[in-house]
Design a protein around this nucleic acid. Structure first.
Lengths: 238, 238
DNA sequence: TGTACATCAGTGAACGCGCGTTCACTGATGTAC
DNA sequence: TGTACATCAGTGAACGCGCGTTCACTGATGTAC
């Protein structure tokens, strides 16, 4: 199969507005140029989902995906990393929502809420392994700056932006609070909810990443496994 | 800094044998051509360590690294993936050795041995984050084969080779046995060492990957954290 | 009501790069006769 | 003891590719006068 440079069948082609050339996205009306920014992020997410890694999110691939010319991206994002960051923020929002929804779907019992939130975390990670992987992909490693084998990053340091930390902190704070609620209700022996939340978090993160990497391993049923991790690590006593 | 195609200062240049052209590796004696294969893997590992990801392991980068011409690699490895696989096997061997050495450095007490083995696992992962990351990097995701955005893999399926599974199984079996030893000594309430070993493993894996990804987080001291994870998950009672 | 103009939302061609891979080759070293 | 030859251990140039990025541009749409 030969892959041609121009998009052959972008998502959403044909819906709304009879594009002059098939496969080309109709241009936005004046003043609505910002919509393309959303489409670019959506295209990046689609590529991440389909290919399983953020490597595939190249400017040209995104442009093909949504039916525009590659240089059109520069009007909305300064470079590839900015697209990835926008995608990461969107995914973090989805994860936080999933956890909140999961916890709220449980009753008032604090242990149920804690376990439900953790189960929601795992379900999100396992349902969207590629998106989850991008969240915690090392943005660029701790390498010596003078190493010619490491392409220089002109402005951005190795760490994710502050917004990402905010989102991560929000999700983590939910977990800490859930453990604290258990302790205050007398059903957890935790005396250091932050430390115990850290332990729970690494276990959840390890579960998502290992299950994704080794799908052939005979993993136990998710609900049971969630309890197996969370109950002891959160020092649940009841 | 301009990067020129020819190697400028490969590791090991100048040691042993006055190469005609500086930066060029002296050729192996007849019958010892296999030594280049080892050098290629060593070069790949050096690139992984320096750059933090296996992405940097391109045929040309490896060739530059060890001072040979890129096509020379084909005499020893059919393609890039074969080099990565050889590196993965080597790293797995190092990890298994580290765990064994760690456990053996503890006394005869089964809990001490279990914790020491787990601590050795964490120490290895944190001391060599890039190598550890390559071990568990998704070799290529579960993506639809007909997706043009996913480059086709002609022969190899998405999963790692059988040798990798063997090594992983060996390391995992060590962990299962350590928990079983604790149970038989009456210091663990585990009735399903495999399930509990799985729980411990995901926690260890999550610790290595999260600590690597988020080095700025105030992680607790390693020894204490190891016990915090392993003792409850392995159902240690004593 | 015209019309010149500014702005918006992009396009298409081209550049230089590193990449995997191929091809024909080179030069040293061992071996058969 | 020679010498022709096979083999080994590579090299150097070239290909086509996708990539990020630049440049000058196009054509529709709103706005000032």
């Amino acid at each position: 199969v030969r892959v041609v440079e121009t998009a052959s069948a972008p998502a959403g082609a044909g819906t709304g507005g009879s594009p002059a050339v098939p496969g080309r996205r109709p241009r936005n009306a004046r003043g609505e140029g910002g919509r393309l920014a959303e489409d670019i992020v959506a295209g990046a997410l689609a590529l991440i989902d389909r290919t399983g890694s953020e490597e595939a999110v190249t400017l040209r691939a995104v442009a093909r995906e949504i039916g525009i010319a590659a240089p059109s991206i520069y009007a909305h994002f300064p470079d590839r990393d900015a697209i990835i960051m926008a995608a990461v923020l969107r995914i973090f929002g989805e994860l936080v929502d999933a956890i909140t929804t999961g916890a709220d779907s449980a009753g008032p019992d604090p242990v149920d809420r804690l376990v439900a939130g953790c189960a929601a975390y795992l379900r999100f990670g396992l349902a969207h392994p590629a998106r989850y992987g991008v969240l915690f992909a090392e943005r660029r490693m701790t390498a010596r700056d003078d190493d010619p084998a490491v392409p220089a990053r002109p402005d951005r340091p190795g760490s994710p932006g502050p917004e990402v930390h905010e989102f991560g902190a929000e999700a983590f704070a939910q977990l800490v609070q859930a453990i604290r609620d258990c302790a205050e209700a007398g059903v957890s022996a935790s005396t250091d909810p932050v430390a115990d939340a850290t332990a729970v978090w690494v276990a959840l993160h390890g579960t998502v990443t290992l299950r994704t990497t080794l799908p052939g391993y005979p993993w136990p049923e998710l609900g049971r496994f969630t309890r197996q991790l969370v109950v002891p690590l959160a020092r649940i006593t009841a």
